[in-house]
Simulated scan of single mutants.
Amino acid sequence: MAAPNWKLLTAFEAAARHRSFTRAAQELNVQQPAISRRVAALETELGVRLLNRTRPNVSLTREGEVLFRAVASSILQVSSAAEQICRRPDKDVVTVNTTIGFASCYLMKRLPAFRTAHPEISVELISRDQNNAYGPDADIIIAFDHPDRLPGVRHRLIFQETMVAVAHPEVANTIPDTPAALAQSPLLHLTMGNHTDDWNTFFADTGLTPPPPVSERKFTSFMVYLQAALNGDGVILGWQTLLQDHFDLGQLTPVTSRRLNTERGYFVCLTERAQSNAAALKIMDWLADATP
């Protein structure tokens, strides 16, 4: 089959990201019915349902999850490529390597303000799905880890990890606010890198051991893990600052009042090649000094 129409894909990505046809229409500066028609046309073209038309928010189907992950990554890459093509010769170019999750949930909405304040700097984004899958071709790496295990030659904290168990409100409302009730709820597991033991860490001082995950509750991609929670499939461990937009929109809510602060966090790391790069240092300071 031919590649899907890009206009249909961007409408789907916006609707999936916002969980709303209305907010997607506002972002793309079109009427809400246009978004609905484009998503429907894409579903017809692919022969599968991508979005569940629920109220007040739409949700992704399993097939929609797969496509959203691919499209979200592609849009980041296309945006970066477009900036590369259009950049002025007098601009300083800084390559930032970051995860799709951090870019989608935190960085993308803040970058326009930086670009307005520093029009002389061009930010080129390289996105990755795995936290430690960064390569050598970057001036700045945004990494989630313990401060003793960070890449680069210098680093500054963006925000520290505050673990919180979260779920779709309909799921959260069924779970009493106790560690024992949480341990028996449908826990979803992120089984990649330094996240494989997160639930054991969260329950470490409670005397409880969460049951091992069944295969359908294990995820190797943060974006798919997050989407499973948005779909109401179970409870995930998230980070207060990273998921704040989802809390504000009522898409996710904390399951219990329990919070766990660790020494880990999101750090902006300066690579060796950028040690004397003034533009890279400006981005580093901006990320570290910004209000979470």
Rank of each mutant, 00 (worst) to 15 (best):
I126S: 08
V30F: 01
V224C: 04
F102S: 04
I175A: 07
K7A: 13
I121E: 09
V66Y: 08
D90E: 14
A181F: 00
T241W: 00
P147K: 08
V171G: 01
Y134E: 00
S74T: 09
T191L: 12
G250I: 03
R264S: 10
D90Y: 11
S59V: 13
A278V: 11
A34I: 06
R88P: 05
F219K: 01
I126Y: 07
T191A: 11
V93S: 11
T61I: 03
N231G: 08
A278T: 13
P211L: 08
T61A: 02
F12S: 08
L270C: 09
Y106D: 00
N97D: 15
L226T: 02
Q184H: 11
A172W: 00
F102A: 00
R154E: 15
A165P: 08
Q227R: 05
P186N: 11
G152W: 03
N194R: 14
T99P: 02
R19N: 08
F202S: 03
N97V: 08
S80D: 03
N194T: 12
L270D: 02
W199G: 00
E263G: 14
R49L: 10
F219S: 04
N200H: 14
M223A: 07
I126P: 01
F12I: 05
A228R: 04
Q160R: 15
T61C: 09
M284T: 13
E43G: 07
R69Q: 06
N231H: 09
R17M: 09
A117S: 04
G265V: 06
E27H: 13
R49T: 15
I121C: 07
T291F: 13
S215K: 12
L42K: 12
R17Y: 10
N52P: 06
S20C: 01
G64L: 01
Y134M: 05
N194C: 05
K218D: 04
A279D: 07
F159W: 15
V123N: 02
D285M: 10
K109S: 13
N5G: 10
V268H: 06
K91W: 10
L50Q: 07
Q31N: 12
